[in-house]
Design a protein around this nucleic acid. Structure first.
Lengths: 183, 183
DNA sequence: CTGAACATGTAAAAGGTTACATGATTTT
DNA sequence: AAAATCATGTAACCTTTTACATGTTCAG
């Protein structure tokens, strides 16, 4: 069984609990967004595809066009997800325009380098606040299977620790660049 | 002037010093790879494109097919690069399959979560060694303008501090998951 | 009843990765 | 002379992004 990681991620969200496409998007925004964005244009085609493969099924009989459709995993879907979970992962990849700029910014002088670091710090700090405001796994109210999962909590903690490290680095770097007034 | 960040990154490497396509790829591998990969299939078409825009020029008269071509920035190219450097950057984006799996791995039990964390730790540790082995900015021998640039050094330090944070988090997470033998 | 949020979708274009294909140069 | 590395390029495919398009439900 072969899917794009975006497909797997959608499958994963349905494994946590049944929901409609819109709710998947929201859940992705709350948790995964920074390391696996799911874009609008891909969500609904992927749902159709997963349905065709028999990995998910609509709650009602037939999904009507334009109406809200709640999807849930089939047995095959859960099996496929578990199989994927045991598969080795592709390496982490980032696309970080700001860092690329930093690489080449010397030409413009120290102040330009500082500007880039400041931009970076501000962006990370804003993201950190946003992430800190979210409670991981609290996707439903009341007692729920989702609540005692370690996965969402660990991922949330990872995001925070990454952001803290990045912000810390920005500050160190700014101090370093400000300190040595050579060149 | 509008380019893809891949194009800008190529331009940036030529700003540091003139070189051929192959050398750009190598330089990218040494420095930027983890946060802005430049893939083979894009490099040469991009060089042609940058040439058409008048941002870079070949060393010899005309670039011959199959022969090594050393490219350097034109005045317009350097101007465009500088302009880009002052432009606000797109937000950092990562694609991290391992983290997505972690999010959904609870179903398979604590041992599967630990496996994922171990896989993650090993991958980051390997990358860390690889990155640590590289000396930033040392792209030429002898005294060189590249040597007193802060950019490459800062970026190198960022990579290391990111990797350290990630490895630290893996270890904390493993301890946490191992510790609480509930569920 | 009006606007905000909910909900689903499509089409086109841009971008990136992979695999392939070829030949030159240098080292052993 | 063979092998490794240097060097350039193409084509197909896959994925993602963006922009658009439409209709519903609920709160004020």
């Amino acid at each position: 069984m072969q899917l794009t990681p975006t497909g797997w991620s959608i499958l994963g969200f349905l494994a946590l609990q049944p929901r409609n496409g819109y709710a998947i998007r929201q859940a992705a925004r709350r948790s995964v967004e920074h390391f696996w964005g799911v874009s609008d244009g891909q969500l609904y085609p992927q749902l159709r595809h997963l349905h065709e493969l028999g990995l998910i099924a609509p709650a009602g009989a037939a999904p009507e066009r334009g109406a809200s459709t709640t999807w849930h995993l089939t047995t095959a879907g859960r099996g496929a997800l578990h199989e994927w979970l045991r598969t080795p992962s592709a390496a982490t990849r980032s696309r970080d325009e700001n860092l690329v700029k930093l690489m080449f910014a010397d030409d413009l002088g120290r102040s330009a380098v500082l500007d880039l670091l400041q931009e970076r710090r501000a962006a990370f700090a804003a993201t950190r606040e946003q992430v800190a405001a979210v409670k991981p796994g609290a996707q439903r109210h009341g007692e729920d299977e989702a609540l005692d999962r370690v996965g969402p909590r660990l991922v949330h903690e990872y995001s925070l620790s990454f952001l803290d490290a990045a912000i810390g680095w920005c500050e160190d770097a700014m101090a370093e660049v400000t300190g040595q007034e050579g060149s």
